[in-house]
């Protein structure tokens, strides 16, 4: 068996100290294979966003092992591209300049930046808006730029924290289709946090259901639905069955456990 791309083993995390200390993640074990798309789902407060933030290197953890390609994760870095729910486009830069900003930070040659930026705007179908400022873009367009930016510097994996959570239903569907297309063509290891089960089933190879009190992994579902996936797949019985099972698992996982 191949070594995992991302390894999370025996990870614990608590907030606060003393009496007010609350455990948010308990004994998380999760390996992501190379080019695997894994979604974390669960009710709010299950620690899924915290886990993603820890993998991004933006938060500490108390105990456990965390590594990418065998190298321990100690801080944020360019090997993990992050897409935040809040778009995070810098408002004083155009769409193209926002991508160039990341490329320059990654140490790309100035002359190459423009070309790579335009190439990635094309990837998310936004070539026509390269010179527009974020204030002139819709929510969906902003998030497409953010995805293009995170992909542009070729990270080893992509971390997405409810990236479509703030979008309306129609735009969200379009974004899901676009992301699936890009992923199927370019293949990349993705850790995706969402509370939308349909979205998780549509996009993922594997779905990890997390429970609360404290946050931990309750169940894992392999999504056997064939690729390439198009929107029609959502109406197949296999898709709907799995969606129902995941929903059920989330409901069960959300019940507070008896104190042992």
């Amino acid at each position: 068996m191949n070594a995992p791309k991302l390894r999370i083993a025996g990870l614990h995390k608590s907030f606060g100290t003393g009496e007010r200390r609350t455990e948010v993640l308990r004994d998380i074990n999760l390996d992501l294979a190379d080019n695997e798309f894994v979604s974390l789902v669960g009710t709010s407060g299950c620690g899924k966003s915290t886990l993603l933030s820890i993998v991004a290197g933006l938060q500490d953890f108390d105990a456990g092992e965390l590594s990418i390609d065998g190298a321990p994760i100690l801080q944020p870095g360019l090997d993990r591209g992050v897409v935040f729910q809040s778009y995070t486009l810098l408002p004083w830069l155009t769409a193209r300049q926002n991508i160039e900003f990341a490329l320059k930070a990654a140490g790309y040659d100035r002359s190459a930046c423009r070309e790579i930026a335009l190439e990635h705007l094309d990837l998310v179908k936004l070539s026509h808006s390269a010179d527009r400022f974020p204030s002139e873009l819709s929510g969906g367009m902003k998030q497409r730029v953010a995805i293009a930016r995170a992909l542009s510097y070729r990270p080893k994996m992509l971390l997405m924290d409810e990236p479509f959570g703030a979008l309306d239903a129609l735009t969200r569907h379009q974004m899901q289709e676009l992301l699936t297309q890009i992923w199927e063509e370019h293949r990349l290891t993705v850790l995706f946090v969402t509370h939308d089960v349909e979205e998780a089933v549509y996009l993922s190879d594997r779905i990890v259901v997390m429970g609360i009190g404290p946050g931990r992994i309750m169940r894992t579902f392999n999504v056997g639905i064939e690729r390439p996936r198009r929107e029609e797949v959502m109406e197949t019985p296999a898709f709907m069955d799995l969606q129902r099972d995941v929903h059920k698992a989330i409901r069960e996982a959300s019940k507070r456990p008896e104190m042992a």
């Binding site: 991004a56 290197g57 870095g77 360019l78 591209g81 935040f84 809040s86 995070t88 810098l90 930070a105």
Partner: peptide, 14 residues
């Protein structure tokens, strides 16, 4: 300044 802006800078290794 939004915390995610600073998070972005950190994930870019700045």
């Amino acid at each position: 300044v939004p915390a995610d802006f600073i998070g972005l800078g950190r994930t870019l290794g700045l």
